[in-house]
Design a protein around this nucleic acid. Sequence first.
RNA 1: GGGUGUGUAGCUCAGUGGUAUGAGCACUACGUUGACAUCGUAGGGGUCGCUGGUUCGAUCCCAGCCACACCCACCA
Length: 878
Amino acid sequence: MLEKNYNPKDFEEKIYADWEQSGDFMPDMHSSKDAFSIVIPPPNVTGVLHMGHALDDTLQDILVRYNRMLGKKVLWQPGTDHAGIATQMVVERNLAKEGISRHDLGREKFIETVWKWKEKSGGTICKQLRRLGASCDWSRERFTMDEGLSRAVRRIFVNLYKDGLIYKAKKLVNWDSKFGTAVSDLEVVQKETVGKMYYYKYPIEGEEGQYVHIATTRPETMFGDTAVAISKNNEKLKHLIGKKCIIPIINRAIPIIADDHADPEKGTGAVKITPAHDFNDFEVGKRHNLPMINVLNLDATLNENTPYPGLTTQEARAKTIETLTQMGLMDKIEDHPMVIPYGDRSGVVIEPLMTDQWFVDAPVLAKEAIRAVEQGEMEFVPKSYEKTYFEWMRNIQPWCISRQLWWGHQMPIWYGPDGTIFCEESEEEAQTAAEKHYGKSVALTRETDVLDTWFSSGLWAFSTLGWPDKTSYLDTFYPTSVLVTGFDIIFFWVARMMMMSMYMMKKVPFKKCYIHGLVRDEQGRKMSKSKGNTVDPMDTIEKYGADALRFFMAAMETQGRDINLNESRIAGYRNFATKLWNAARFGEMNGCQGRKDFDEKTVQHPVNKWIVAKAKQATKEVTDNLNNYRFSDAANAVYQFVWGTFCDWYIEMIKPIFYGNNEAEKAETKACFAWVLDRILVILHPFMPFITTELWNNTQQREVKLIHAAWPMAEEVNLEAINDIDWAIDLISAIRSLRAEMNLPASAKLNITLSGAGEDSRQHAAAFNTIICSLARLESLSCQNVEVTPDMVQSVFKECTMLLPLKGVIDFAAERDRLKKELETLNKNLEGYARKLSNPNFVEKAPQAVVEEEKRRQAEALENKAKVEKALARIANF
RNA sequence: GGGUGUGUAGCUCAGUGGUAUGAGCACUACGUUGACAUCGUAGGGGUCGCUGGUUCGAUCCCAGCCACACCCACCA
């Protein structure tokens, strides 16, 4: 028995637990069917589910469930990411509450603490994914830091190193002073700010009273200046080239050099060059062999190369300006709009800093990754994201992979006493290699840096399947079928996976990459904690059920567009679920359990034939749209069928059968109802897995679980059966409109006489009788002599409208106006058709079908015109 | 500065070279029909951003413009 009210909370969690315990999410490895696999974009282990996940994982689950019902071997591989910086940050914050810093604990103890934290609170997001209904194979859940994946990381690192694609170099990198680590270009965000431009001057050496005027936004870095650059095309200033100037305060002489980096139009035309603290200056420094003077400590305070060691950059800046002013060297200070780099996690200003770091030779790896997409081995959906991908890949810079953190994959690098590098997968192997190199056993020290989190994420598509071991899962499921992710992650992850997979596996990690947009708030603003406009999907699920949220995501997902969250719409999809629930209850109440003997191919009654055909048509639409990743079209096709066809019309049309006494018809209709409801449950299941399962389990005895029910394929749709009833629906709609238009009171009884006969009229009349019966009941109509053919109906109806004995009820003046207006429109259209059809250009150049259609319309309009004229004549005297 | 995308009903958005039978929500009127008021029936509401061009025909294709997003790079 179904409860009176649809209450998703009653069953959603219970149903999920059953699936998981019964192993329903595990692939049937013995099946001979194709494989379908998705690896989940691993959420941060520290993460909680947000609307972006809800969208991303709903789409994946729809594809997974759909393919599972197609009978394929389906694996949705779940797991989480150790998220180096993010996790270290969370754990450090917790420690800070107890007044402990990670340095108090020491590296080993700290890492232990992180693991403990992970065991205790790391699983939140996976629990939430279950609540959403994600049918991941949790028995295979992985973590980027677990032993298997760590082994994969070491293996690929050693391979890359030995191929010369990983190298160590002292370079200017983005330095995050909060975490004391290098970060990659991608982890730096540029923020617009109004800063200040400082104009001041450096005295020319040996020329009293002569100066070179410079402009800078960062005066405190002047102690690291090793030159001043002027363009050789700068007529005003080029006489200074070759001289030397003096850095005030520290009185160090630096050369004035010629370099086109100095744009005569910008600033003062002369640029101070600080190679150790600016990426452009670094390049200038390299060109001119300038020394590099580092003026910052790792915590972004000034160092002993400056007069202000220990001060922050802000403090030092103030101090520098003060001193320069006292010395009379300041020219002016102006407001200056500028962008300043910040760490995306830390929120502190990123400093370019010279440090020893490890790099992946991304430009080399990118080549294969580009080729694979060019040659269609991997396709983006929508295709336009290719451009973004190519653009970035073709301009890719070496990827800085070393992080001076504690939480992460420690690099498999060991140093000998003389600094020789041994890169091996284990300490033993490194020892062996060292022994071979030195001819004796020596003590090695391991590199303390860990790897960028995205390094291990880049291996996700194959490391989770067991690589580097040869496993059946790897054979079966790699390359994976599709990757579903947001566009914001293309560079971070998609690009890196492509590079790593092409390098190591020589195959793409996924055959398709479906890119979706962002979930925004109702006004289309980006959701962010600081704006306070985030919506917790768990709250939404609590309020409307997981099915409603999922359906919302699917229905709103149109390719290449962001989704604005819309609570009323989610409520609308909860109502949709309620509607289906009640329809099922209607079936239950009328004994529609069991459809054992029902064969939808031999169904008799026109209404049943019609709904069967409609159901098949809807199935085809859903199937086609899902195959093309058109989520919203697929969702809307089911929605429209369930509500607009099944509930609005079918149920209404079969009521007379249920309340009548033709037992044969009744029996067939009951079975048919059950069949259609089952069909709905099947095609709706990927979108709304919970309610469909609950109804599946409670409407009749089952041999298969819905999650494994077969998706119907390649059915023939009986279009004739569809027409048989569709015209009747049009008719009823027209009658209803007419009643409303005429303002008839509910009690008014209409007398409609339909007449006409045709060869095939009997069948249609049967259908029509059914309709009219329900209509009579609902619309207070009585109908006689019903015998019509579909193609007659329009005309019959038009006539009977006019013949309705409604004198005194109809406002005939208004009706005349309406008809006259219609006549006008028809005449106008007829003119248009005639003009077109007499235009030789149209007749010759337009497609034949279009011309035919035009002719048909013309004929139709002529016919209508005749009828309207006739009708006008009839009511002329009223 | 380079690039991408978006302007269609009050709102959020589908869609299409052939008269926009557009969707949901919101709105108006009516409705205690034996699944459902988390409902039903009917209705109002659009010069498809602007201007040109291509075409027999443009909301759709092309060009320009305006507006709004976003991405990349840089600004001494």
